[in-house]
């Protein structure tokens, strides 16, 4: 990358990082409201249910310690991109999106979805600025839960995964910021023929 592309990529990564942090805070508020909407036992602090079938399909942020550290930039970004494109499908099917939920909850959910869509676009922007191809689209179908309780269980796990994914993404973009420093640093290096 020449220094202009460098500056573009660096700015894009920084914006993506800032958006991730904003989403973390937004989700923190939304999750509390949503769990109260789901009601007990979902809003109890020590609720730790098994992950039943539907929730197993939600993309998990969990990753092997060594593997995460060894991911290259392309793989790191691709993992984020695929996760959020998949998570967005689930978000659209959340119980809170249905008319049953309160208007404020539906509005917060829609606002969060739009912000997450923005993050997806931002990640795509970083990938193209670094010359990486976008990963293939995610298969559209998501399993429909057999009961209302299982649907709430899926929502519970979706919220949890989203929180962890955003937590992971913030760390991923921190690593990228270090590897793609701001152009000014690069310009100085250029001046000294490094």
């Amino acid at each position: 990358l020449n220094s202009t592309d460098q500056a573009g990529a660096s700015r894009s990564i920084q914006q993506t990082y800032d958006l991730t942090q904003y989403l973390e805070q937004q989700l923190r508020a939304l999750a509390g409201t949503y769990l109260n909407y789901l009601g007990p036992p979902f809003n109890e602090p020590d609720f730790d249910p098994p992950r039943v079938i539907g929730a197993e399909a939600v993309p998990s942020a969990t990753v092997d310690f060594e593997l995460w550290h060894s991911l290259n930039d392309n793989a790191r970004l691709a993992a984020n991109y695929q996760a959020y494109s998949h998570l967005l499908c689930y978000l659209r099917a959340m119980d809170g999106a249905t008319p049953v939920a309160t208007p404020t909850l539906r509005h917060s959910l829609a606002h969060f979805r739009a912000s997450l869509q923005g993050l997806l676009g931002s990640i795509a922007g970083v990938m193209s600025s670094l010359g990486y191809p976008l990963p293939p689209p995610v298969p559209a179908g998501i399993p429909t839960p057999h009961s209302h309780f299982l649907r709430k269980m899926d929502d519970f796990w979706l919220l949890k995964e989203l929180q962890i994914w955003l937590w992971r993404s913030a760390k991923d973009f921190n690593r990228l910021r270090k590897r793609v420093p701001p152009a000014s640093v690069m310009l100085r290096l250029d001046a000294r023929d490094f």
């Binding site: 730790d48 998990s60 969990t62 310690f65 995460w68 949890k160 962890i164 994914w165 937590w167 992971r168």
Partner: peptide
Amino acid sequence: IRYLQLFSTKR
């Protein structure tokens, strides 16, 4: 204890 996995939703 060493973490074997990161970013886990399991407690």
